[in-house]
Design a protein around this nucleic acid. Sequence first.
RNA 1: GGGGUCGUAGUUCAGCUUGGUUAGAACGCCGGCCUGUCACGCCGGAGGUCGCGAGUUCGAGUCUCGUCGGCCCCGCCA
Length: 597
Amino acid sequence: MKSKSILRGKRTHFCGELRKKDVDKEVILFGWVNRIRDIGNLIFIDLRDREGLAQVVISSEQKDLLGKAKNIRMEYVLAVKGVVKPREEGMKNHELATGDIEVLVKEMEVLSQSETLPFVISDPVKATEEMRFKYRYLDLRRPSMQKNIRLRHRAALIVRNFLDKKGFYEIETPFLTKSTPEGARDYLVPSREYKGRFFALPQSPQLFKQIFMISGFDRYFQIVRCFRDEDLRADRQPEFTQIDMEMSFAGQEDVFSVTEEMIVCLFDLIGARLSRPFPRLTYEESMERFGTDRPDLRNRMEIIDLTDTGLRIDSRIIRSVLQSDGVLKGLVVQNGKNLSRSRLDKVEKRARGLGAKGIIWIKKEKQTFTSPLRLKNEDFTQIWEKSKAGEDDLILLVADKKETALRVLGELRTDFFYQEKTDSTDFQFVWITDFPLFEWSEDENKLVSMHHPFTSPKAEDMPELEKEPLKVKADAYDLVVNGVEIGGGSIRIKDRDTQERIFRVLGLDEKEQENKFGFFLKALTYGAPPHGGIALGFDRIVMILAGEESIRDVIPFPKTTSSLCLMTDSPSEVDENRLKEVGIQIIKKNKGGKNDE
RNA sequence: GGGGUCGUAGUUCAGCUUGGUUAGAACGCCGGCCUGUCACGCCGGAGGUCGCGAGUUCGAGUCUCGUCGGCCCCGCCA
């Protein structure tokens, strides 16, 4: 047996950090076998660790080593002791940060072996996302994933250091808490000691952070997990992380200022220089011009209002819409003249899918117009001039209820933009302000909070709260970058009376208020400072910093779009006894899957 | 809950339109050769429940229905 293990020695370097300056040094490296190039009497191994790759060389001058190296396979874990040698010109690998040197092996130990891998660890990845999830530990070995997770760590560190400097305390809040009636579906946790009663995992620490303000901590933040039991998307996971913040004696400007400064620090991580202050749009303006409350301002297209023009032109279809409270909205597609008929059919289909009854396109050739809509030439000309369309452009029109027309054209505006190459180093931030306090839920047939029920109405709208609730604006705001909503917040209600008025408008009777929010209403009566805050989507911010298109690529262990964890195979069934313990009886199983008998 | 799309070797895919020999390729894996490779190269080999279940048919990877799973979107996400 060998007397002494390399492990007795200390690692001297990470593989990825070796450079020319390390030539002639004796080094000890630990790492995974990324690739083997066996030339016969000469073997090259790319050894990989957190920091990168280094080429280690075993030659026939050491017969015993060579024999040992012949048995090495991909992803074996090795300890290597050797000397750093310069590479001759022509043998350098300029693709590799460590490409000027290599390590001539003197001693080598296999610390761990590896079975044949389900997929090769490479960037860009060649495995499907399904495979990557199942073998997440292997997927995470890929340099790009390592980079994303490191970036996430550094972003969190910047947030902590920055907010600490600004006087924020990082304070934790409970995960086992109370189910709330409004908002997203809660994840429920049964109570063993009180059968039939449940904790809920927090959708956000909203009330706790407001209570911190009432408790006098003045400024709070937390990088905190939030849970929402809703369907998923590329930018939505059932558990996600927020940078949650709250400030006392602060108004909107204070929240904007500290948030912007922090965002600037975060984007400095990737060398992006942002200019402040960020532009602002009211909700109303954003909807009118972009058809969405999270506009991508890199996209210069804007929706135009043609309702007045529509009333003047001779079209029964358009007139009938406009006379029943509808609007005529348009979108100019630059150089859209050459869009094929089948492409236009797709646009039409998409518009119908979004709820439009149809869409009208107009093309121009010299002085004549082509369109499925039959109009007099001078009417087409009116529209064309009002739209300020150019010769090679295409005009899209939607005549519908205002909300529908704006939404449809807003989506089409986005579709057209993403078919072009977008500049990934251009970050267009915008604050959306003055959101409505309430919106009408067709589903539940009642008013619901647009933000959340603790949001302060604008002072000047207070008298209208009960009479015209849908016209009341809130001191609420969102932060948007390149069409992604990365945060939202508001100035909060600070007195019990206002809070109760809001609850009443939302249809919560006194008993319900007491039952769900009694503790909070009471807290508001003992000296609540004016306060407000914001919550930023940490995963989304890291996603944008990393240049990824899904937050799954910046979350170590994400769920699939159907809320499954393929690595642990959860959720899974539990023993009958465990269920009994928490007083739960399964009524009916669905999704027969693997867990069923 | 709805729509779209995908599921074939360990992996990534082709084959499916128009049903019909032994289901192919690349990478990986196994064996051999190779002293300057770096996606090493060359030679040879093993490897398939065509996701699962029904149906149509003389015959199904291919057509139909159902189901499970991945991804995208709508609803939903205060």
